[in-house]
Amino acid sequence: MSRARRWAIGGGLAVAALAITAMLVGPGDIDATQVLSAIGRGLVGSSRADDLIDAQVWLLRAPRVLVVALVGAALAGGGAVTQGLFRNPLADPSVLGISLGAAFVAVVGIFLGLDRAGVWVTPLLAALGAGATLGVLLGLATRSGDATTLLLAGVALGATFGAATTCVLALAGDRHELGIKVLRWLMGSFEGRSWGHLAVATAPIGAGLALAVALARDLDALALGDDVAASLGVSPRAVQRRAVTAVALLVGGATAVAGVLGFLGLVVPHVVRWRLGSGHRSLLPLSAIVGASTLLAVDTLTRIAPVALPPGIVTSLIGAPAFLWILLRQRSRRPT
């Protein structure tokens, strides 16, 4: 059995185990039997919205667990695609300001009240924001082709969008509720995510993941540069277009439903690549699986923690030092 397959099976089991754990733990005295029977009722559609246990298990925990797994898969998958596209291990939707771009456009939408037009508006706007940011970065990257320029441009874009978002908040000034809503969202949250949220996130993230996995060969071909890819019969422009679409769907969908979550897209693909090599055939699905299980673990921790922790802060708190550690470890291994 290949290493990738062992990882896939292990990762799948981890996702399942964490999802079950997440369903079992939480406030309130609900034992495993009650949880299972509530899930059973939910699955056959006889769950009652006015039953306390059904509500807690099937209306609060179940959709939240699924949203968390989906968002984890989306962000890690989006990170893997972004890194492959820019041929840079530091390329990540949150580092490059893509998440903030998505957040900014979505916040403007909320500010203008566009989100009242339907549940699909915010994901759509977030995807547009992510896609547009990525497009600008890609334009810069193809013009200068220099990793430092790209990262600095990403940081600058992120700062711009962050400031612009704050500006919108300031304009919203006396609309207190809006301000709190937006701030909570910028910190990243899975609070009260329902089946409705799951329905909204599934389409873009599902499409984005499918598109990402179907990009495996072409992202591989980019490994040695645009010219080699072209000589191998892969058009770099076509890959860019499809990769931008995939990342926009993934990051847009994830950001719309969970807010801004940092570092997951940076660290997870990095770890998978480091342990497993960089073939996108296994890197993309495995990043998604590991991303899902990581975020599930983080969210379950925040749920049972005695103080309320925004998951976005936790991913950054764990992610940033983990990244530094990986960086140092890799550097020390490099032959001189």
């Binding site: 179907a214 060969r217 591989d220 071909a221 040695l224 080699v228 191998l232 073939g279 055939r281």
Partner: peptide
């Protein structure tokens, strides 16, 4: 993995 890139023109989209 580098050598296998030479197979790109023969592979499907999933790079199996």
């Amino acid at each position: 993995e580098i050598v296998a890139l030479g197979r790109t023109p023969h592979l499907g989209a999933l790079a199996r």
